[in-house]
Amino acid sequence: MKLNIKCFMKKGLCVAALIFTAGISAFAQGITTANEFFKAVSDKYATFKDYQAVVDIKIGNTPMAATVTYMAPDKMRMDYTNPANQTIVYDGKKLICYLPESASVLTQDATGANPTTSEGLSLLRRYYTVSYEKGQGKVPLDEGSDEMVIKLILWRRTASESFRNIKMSIDPDTKLIRRIVATTPGGVVYQFDFKNYELNQGLTAKRFEYDIPSGANNYDNFLFAD
């Protein structure tokens, strides 16, 4: 599913959640180029049947927090603790965003390649160039931090992509993506920090069913609304 900049900026939270819940990993010994390293991430991601993780989110200066759940090949759910009760679900066919503050439900039919799969990561390789941000060696996650990661940066190949660049920090010990930071052409920064992963729990499709709260205002095909 390819989104233009106008739609992304207008509906950023739901779209960013759909695109950037790929909290998976790979740290391949002997990889010498950033592109090969990133391909290893995609290949490793393809081996996961499901996962769950806690994610701290910051959009500009607005903090959020959620639990993200994924099941191969294309199901995703985010249950928010901040803002409380906010929910985003993608069942492989439809994207549902429940926004409790406005008692609104946004829905969108969204078939096609989901960027939270290995196929989606391959699409990022196609539309972005990949390089090491700090070289192949381990560097602190933040300045002065004891947590060491490998950092990649992806630059868009054309102006049609929703993000100017995407940064990924990969933990070389747990082999999981620790942080994703994406910057739009307008300078809005989306940051996702993943922790407390649980892998291959044997989840079923029932986990991704969602009953829309009664009384909520429903807006269909919101990505393409005026």
Results as ranks from 00 to 15, higher is better:
T111M: 15
Y128A: 14
G92N: 02
L124C: 01
S118P: 05
C97K: 05
D91L: 04
L121N: 03
T111I: 05
S118L: 08
L99A: 07
E119Y: 03
L99F: 04
R125Y: 09
S122E: 14
D109I: 06
S118T: 08
Y90M: 00
L95P: 05
A113C: 03
N114C: 10
K93T: 12
T116K: 01
L121D: 01
R126Y: 06
K94C: 03
A103R: 11
A110F: 05
T111Y: 10
P115S: 03
L106H: 13
T111K: 09
A110Q: 10
T111E: 15
C97L: 02
G120V: 11
A113R: 02
D91K: 11
L99P: 00
Q108I: 03
Y127F: 15
G92F: 06
T107A: 10
L99V: 13
T116A: 13
N114Y: 10
I96G: 01
Q108L: 12
A103I: 00
E101C: 00
E101M: 07
T107V: 12
L99K: 05
Y98M: 03
S122A: 11
R126I: 02
R126L: 12
A110H: 11
E101H: 10
Y127L: 08
G120C: 00
S104A: 07
L123W: 05
L124H: 08
K93Q: 11
L106G: 08
L106W: 04
L99S: 09
Y128S: 05
S122D: 13
L106T: 02
L124F: 14
L123P: 00
P115E: 04
T116P: 00
T117Y: 02
Q108R: 06
C97A: 12
A110E: 10
L123H: 04
G92Y: 01
Y90V: 01
Q108K: 07
A113T: 13
R125P: 00
Y127T: 07
G92V: 03
S104M: 15
D109H: 08
L123M: 15
L121F: 09
Y98N: 08
E101Q: 13
T107R: 11
C97M: 07
G112Y: 04
E101N: 15
Y98Q: 03
P100D: 07
E119R: 11
A103L: 04
S118C: 04
L95H: 06
S102M: 01
